[in-house]
Nucleic acid binder design. Sequence first.
DNA 1: GGGAACCGATTAG
DNA 2: TTCCACTAATCGGTTCCC
Length: 672
Amino acid sequence: MEKNENLSGDKPRPWHSYHTVYTNAKAGMEGVDKEKVQRIVYETSKGSKYFENEEKKEALLRQKIENMRAQRAKLSAADLSHYQTVADRRILELEATRDLSRIWLHADMDAFYAAVETLSNPSLKGKPMAVGGMSMISTANYEARRFGVRAAMPGFIARKLCPELIFVPTDFKKYTHYSELTRKVFEKYDPNFMAASLDEAYLDITEVCKERSMSGGEIAEELRKCVNEETGLTCSAGVAPNRLLAKFVLTNDRMAVMTFIFSLPIRKIGGIGKVTEHILRDAFGISTCEEMLQKGGLLCALFSHSTADFFLSVGLGIGRTDTPQVSSRKSISSERTFSATDDETLLYQKLADIAEMLCTDMKKGGLCGRTLTLKLKTASFEVRSRAVTSEKYFSSSEDILKYASKLLKAELPISLRLMGLRLSHFNEDKIGSPSDPTQKTLNNFIVSADLSRKNLVDSKSLGSDINDLKLMNNMEGSFSIESHELQRYGIRDPLDSNNLQDLNVHHCTSTDSVEAEKIREPSSNKIADKVITKDMAGEVSQWKESGLSLPGQLEGGSPDRVNQVIMDNETVFSSEQKDGLVWVDDYKCSLCGIEMPPYFDEERQEHSDFHLAERLQNDESSIYSRTSTPRQRSVKKDRISSQSKRKRHKPSPKKGRHLSIDMFFAKSNQNF
DNA sequence: GGGAACCGATTAG
DNA sequence: TTCCACTAATCGGTTCCC
């Protein structure tokens, strides 16, 4: 059946062009009929929205690669010579940092979740089994892997590959228990070990090796036995001079490292994923780590400092050897997938649920944040994010939902299959402690100063003459004036309904100072109803039609909350009175005499904010006048909504003509 | 020009 | 029958304000 279809197609083997990660080698997948797996995955996916989106992404990647090839072709002989010199110098500098004095061990539990499930239900032994569900698999045991089934594969595809596959739902309580048992073993070898996940850890075993006069390999063997005795589970362990290579077994000898790394495919390196692999291979002909060094000049010419640095380090087999300080969490998020819908009532209800989930997690960690990011995945699998930063730190579900609703509202109408909320920019203070924006600003100042210093140190060793590389990013493509550029010149599209949204956000934020104070009132501490009723949804559309901001009732429905919200509304709609401003004859400012027609809504509001700010500045008792004026805030928010507007006109600015050299390498400087 | 905020993209488990 | 998750981190680009 499948063969016939393939034969009748234009291309004899169309699945070959469908790049998935499922055919990559993974433990237990040796001998898998890759072509068969690839074909089944293709046939199962073909025609779906997901598939179409993947095709779009691949087309963009091909375009990006073409673009890089074109840039590469533009380099003159002089350029190439220059960047080769840059690369050579950088290689020498990196080589000077090589540290062969440490021994790092990487422990990785074998098919962890599946193994734990088999331990608690021995009847699963020997049968193909996967932990997860029809939508996604977390782990597959080795019996299932022989069929091509693997982690991060949708369950329904896995079932096509292996019809007798047994599905076991995830049970994190169980995995956490076993994880703790393994960590007790790890602690014996390195009290400061780095846990990479529930089933993975990096250990600096240098001291243990010295104390016991044992080699890294011997310690690794002992640790594996110990883990097995304590948990009944098996694990793999690699040993190397640094964390970049700790998944392999290498001695602390430069030649051993270089010999090994040279023939190593780049995809084996942590931080190099599917996209980077394709770019390096198709644009530069780089497949092995050795080629990273051979083509170092090109990499320095066409990539950023840090990226080129990472590539050269990979070519040299140099990775991190220090034990980083325990870093605190930087963000917390919650997201949920559901059947795609454009029903606004339903979307607001789901948003309220997610806000509640996030709030619960925030409370567990005692966290407060001030930047809320709304993540959206459309019915066609396009992913977007929209963020807003508040002057004050917050963690209540009411506050989360308030900001989230504003962000979502700007995207409507839309058909979504996923929504998520992330809170970041944490306050170090715990919930319940008095909120003092001035103090927090100071904290932020100290933190950012530290970060700046760190970045400075990190980049100090880089050659400054690579700075001009950034020019390369702007070389491609022609320019035309688009919506965002119009925005830049202060020209607004009168037909853009989002101008109203700008106004909405503006109205709300211009009163943030007043509202923020109110939110701290005891009444706001009460838990509000999270579910938006149909009636309330009706109000949503009413407010939408009116082009005014969402009233707070829609963001929390308890009577206590309603009182507060009414007060908020008063502040929203009467801020002009509060600063004493009246538009004489609906035209002239009563305070300074400036003339502004009634339809200059936004400009009028900003003008009103100006007077309000002026007044607040005179009021020394106002803490907000010491940190950020309403004028400043309103401008910020205006920018936020402007950006949203731009995206709506041009959903993927990076996907169009402005194909610059994007960043590809997260984590590259962290773990290695 | 530097910094902050926002956004999209990549990676990993 | 089911039809591609969730959490976290990071980086480069862009825009805007000071």
